[in-house]
Design a binder for these strands. Structure first.
Lengths: 142, 142
DNA sequence: GTCCTTGCAAAACGTTTGCAGTTCA
DNA sequence: TGAACTGCAAACGTTTTGCAAGGAC
């Protein structure tokens, strides 16, 4: 599903289609880099020099509320955003902060957790923490 | 392992044993509530009226660096801290923000991820998102 | 005695809010 | 036309930093 299609669907919910939103969403869908709000801001600014950070956050929060975006936050740095929020997993480098995707079909635990906990489970997130190959290489050189 | 034992171990790494640190760590170990820094601050303040928030953060960061603490952050609120960071899982209520533990021995994925990704995996975190029983009840009443 | 830690205050940072003007439907 | 959105700037809450005084070892 591309940016235009998603925004058309959102129109039915009273969300307006604006060129800024299109640019933000297109960038999120085409990148696999889990960008921060600031990185999105600078990228969109190339096309729309007048765009503001407030608009970026406005759009990110709107997309998050409608389930088109996953926010990944880690106490020591700004949030990163993942525009492909279907169930997949992340590997976070504790040294450089890079976030990689890990593609693998895991067992479907949601149903089991729902039955055991009484929660109404909407989704899940799984993350592995470690040192990425590049940082391990750097460590060996020093 | 209790607070005193952990702090004794840290002494070998040049970390000083202070009563404030003991109080913070004791609270983290005895509670299952995943408190925020501010909640820890107010709790410790009962014993040490002069303690400052800066000291709380100082201690939390020190414990995190030494692997005695897991920081759980969620873009829309302040970080929560888990003083029992061995592998277990969380269920986060999207309405009230409460974090519950989910105890279950999962398959050991770390080794597999390590082989497939080239990362040196140190640990992982798994979280389920949904609505807790109390909030579901509240919804039905309204 | 040394160096780490504390408490305090100020600063920094990411994010949100308020508002006047603009744009989409 | 009217509600939603934009850009800007100010505000907000959490976390970090700088520094002088105090405490652990």
């Amino acid at each position: 599903m591309d940016a235009i299609e998603i925004l058309r669907q959102l129109k039915d919910k009273g969300v307006r289609f604006t060129p800024q939103r299109q640019a933000i969403l297109e960038f999120l869908l085409e990148t696999a880099s889990h960008p921060t709000a600031d990185e999105i801001y600078h990228h969109v600014k190339a096309k729309f020099p007048g765009v503001s950070l407030g608009t970026i956050y406005n759009t990110l929060n709107m997309l998050k509320e409608h389930g088109h975006l996953l926010e990944l936050s880690y106490g020591d740095m700004s949030s990163r955003f993942d525009g492909n929020p279907e169930n997949h997993y992340h590997i976070v480098c504790s040294k450089c902060g890079r976030v990689s995707d890990y593609h693998r079909t895991l067992i479907d635990l949601d149903q089991e957790v729902m039955e055991q906990s009484g929660f109404l489970i909407m989704g899940h997130r799984m993350e592995f923490y470690g040192i990425c190959p590049k940082c391990r290489e750097d460590e060996q050189l020093n």
